[in-house]
Write a protein that binds this DNA or RNA. Structure first.
Lengths: 239, 239
DNA sequence: CTAATAAATGAACGACATTCATTTAGTGCT
DNA sequence: AGCACTAAATGAATGTCGTTCATTTATTAG
């Protein structure tokens, strides 16, 4: 019931832009409602993104967020119900950064490729969001919904049977989310170490797998091309 | 430096089995080292699994774990360095439940199918582990390493070029982890709600996507078959 | 004008993971 | 045997974090 009426994503003038310099402001605000609202969802979102980019997700605490916005932590709860809500705001903003432009201008294969790589790259920097996203109803995430709309239309126009589109997108998305983790994994994650002798085939496979570019990119490319050709075969079929 | 010498996974007699009845024991243990050790890694692992199955991952706290084992929370830190360590113990145990038996007895396609479904099913019940696993060096996880060994050998025997095996496994695993989340997602996660009108193609796709069985299973089956046929094409090729 | 609501402060709470001093028991060395 | 060292437990304490609540002040609706 709180904060439902006013806030829009229009970034109303100043507060969001100025607040997070967190600088040399003379003193604290006195208690009570200020004449101009200090917080809104857009400002909270950009402050959270800023904080994450500087301090990582460990640094994204309600207290740190409040400090950046120069408010008391409890003030945040007039605009979001929980920290999870903050993460949802961040997630929805990030989704708007995913490149869906190739749907409509390129072939289905190229469009999926562009979209998937972009999607993975965006969330590879934000893996702590993945457990939240994956169980998140899209209802509360307009940008996410917009992305699905564009992608769905691309699949439909490419001749996909309507009943299979959601499954195909979910399959791709699952692969994308899982792959986002790989990007941040340490390079030696598969080093068998002292147990190399007991696992000879795997050890040999690891040793011989070095190629150009990041291993995570190689694996992602491999899986993505497999999915594209496998799923592409559904086009033009009956349900 | 602590607890490195003695403990093995051999489940030494009683402690692991009896401890977690947490029942009508008369009183507290007096301070100081007990004659027979109360804790070991195997006991901690089974107690953690028990706790998770009864209370979920929210219920898996160091305090609750200690209570189940009838020790003080700080006693746990003589055997694990952190809660993350506990999660690693749990993860490695779960990996041993994944069915790799089809490698060696069935065709490569059938073996991958069996393995992948089993792997997904096991971790669908344990999604909070996924962020931990995904970045986890296999060195500390012998069961996990053993699984990779079996799968690697299966790929090699099926004619996969050695340099591609790790990438292929990573691609499959990424898909599996991502898909595990879907299983636990709410059924109405894709309901566009009030924004249905603004996203007609996606809304139509969602409405028409109802089929027999769980939606998560449909999507997983679709993606897995695509990956199997796409990756299977690598067999017998040069690197 | 007045009641309701929105938006801020600041104090407090309850979990939780983790650390530390202390106590007691086993182990290895001479 | 005796002694130092280490292992394994208790119990108290700490610091962080998300969240709630009473209170204050300003805006808005009727």
């Amino acid at each position: 019931m709180l904060g439902t009426t006013k806030e829009r994503a229009g970034m109303p003038a100043v507060s969001a832009e100025e607040g997070h310099t967190a600088g040399t402001g003379t003193g604290r605000r006195r208690a009570g409602r200020p004449s101009a609202a200090v917080l809104d969802k857009a400002g909270i979102t950009t402050a959270a993104l800023d904080l994450v980019s500087r301090k990582g997700y460990d640094g994204l605490t309600m207290a740190a967020l409040a400090k950046q916005l120069e408010v008391a932590p409890s003030a945040l709860y007039n605009h979001v119900a929980s920290k999870r809500d903050v993460l949802l705001l961040v997630e929805d903003h990030l989704t708007s950064l995913v490149d869906v432009s190739a749907f409509g201008s390129k072939s289905w294969e190229d469009a999926v490729r562009t979209w998937a790589w972009s999607y993975r790259d965006v969330f590879a920097e934000h893996t702590p969001l993945i457990p939240v996203i994956a169980v998140l109803p899209v209802t509360d995430a307009p940008q996410t919904l917009a992305m699905y709309e564009t992608v769905s239309k691309g699949f439909l126009d490419a001749g996909f049977p309507e009943e299979r589109i959601v499954s195909a997108i979910v399959a791709l998305e699952s692969f994308i989310f899982g792959s986002a983790y790989d990007v941040t994994a340490p390079g030696d994650i598969f080093e068998p170490g002292s147990m190399a002798d007991a696992n000879p085939h795997f050890t040999a496979a690891v040793r011989s797998s070095a190629g150009p570019g990041r291993p995570a990119d190689t694996a992602f490319g491999l899986g993505l091309e497999a999915l594209i050709s496998g799923l592409g075969a559904l086009r033009g079929q009956a349900g």
